[in-house]
């Protein structure tokens, strides 16, 4: 249980190290990010949506991971985002497009597409692992609460039963 908590904390920090600089980079160099997205081989309409939704989703993922209550949502959102990015790079590596411009942030701008793919795959696996570990911790804490409540209910029931017996006597 303690080991699981340590792993969840480590994965949380790793994901924060990914999402915070990535979203900050997009916001600080917004014009460069916008140009990079619009150069990608999909429609400009989708690009316009992604320009605003991507940084927002990354910030939401980071905030959810920081908050203990919504960490599960944060891991889920991270997994979905990383799955989308990894899938996109995977399709690009398969040669779906002749040339794919990189709209990468400052953190990973030095990587080529293959390195970028493995980098994303590592974070995708970490997010999924974190999600399952966090879900297990949630379930354990929930079942723990039920056990405590059950114990107190039993005690309460015993007390009532004893009181009734005493009353009859």
């Amino acid at each position: 249980m303690k080991t699981k908590r340590y792993i969840v904390t480590l994965i949380s920090i790793a994901l924060l190290l990914l999402w915070i600089p990535a979203s900050l980079d997009k916001l600080v160099y917004f014009q460069a990010f916008k140009t990079g997205i619009l150069r990608q081989p999909f429609s400009d309409a989708l690009g316009q949506i992604l320009i605003y939704t991507l940084p927002l989703l990354e910030i939401i993922a980071a905030i959810c991971i920081v908050s203990g209550r919504f960490r599960l949502v944060g891991f889920g959102l991270s997994s979905l985002l990383m799955a989308a990015f990894t899938g996109y790079i995977g399709i690009a590596l398969l040669g779906a497009w002749e040339k794919l411009p990189c709209g990468c942030g400052s953190v990973i701008s030095g990587m080529n597409w293959t390195q970028h793919f493995w980098f994303n795959l590592f974070f995708l696996a970490s997010s999924i692992w974190g999600y399952y570990l966090q879900r297990g911790l949630h379930r354990n804490s929930d079942s723990g609460l039920v056990a405590v409540e059950g114990l107190s209910a039993k005690r309460q029931h015993t007390n009532i039963f004893t009181n009734i017996l005493n009353f009859i006597r």
């Binding site: 920090i13 915070i20 600089p21 900050l24 980079d25 160099y29 014009q31 920081v66 400052s106 953190v107």
Partner: peptide
Amino acid sequence: MALVALAIATGSYTLMSFKPAL
């Protein structure tokens, strides 16, 4: 965790300021 996030944000913003403007 919030303090770690704040430290990461501050650190990355500082590093970004060293990056030459595009």
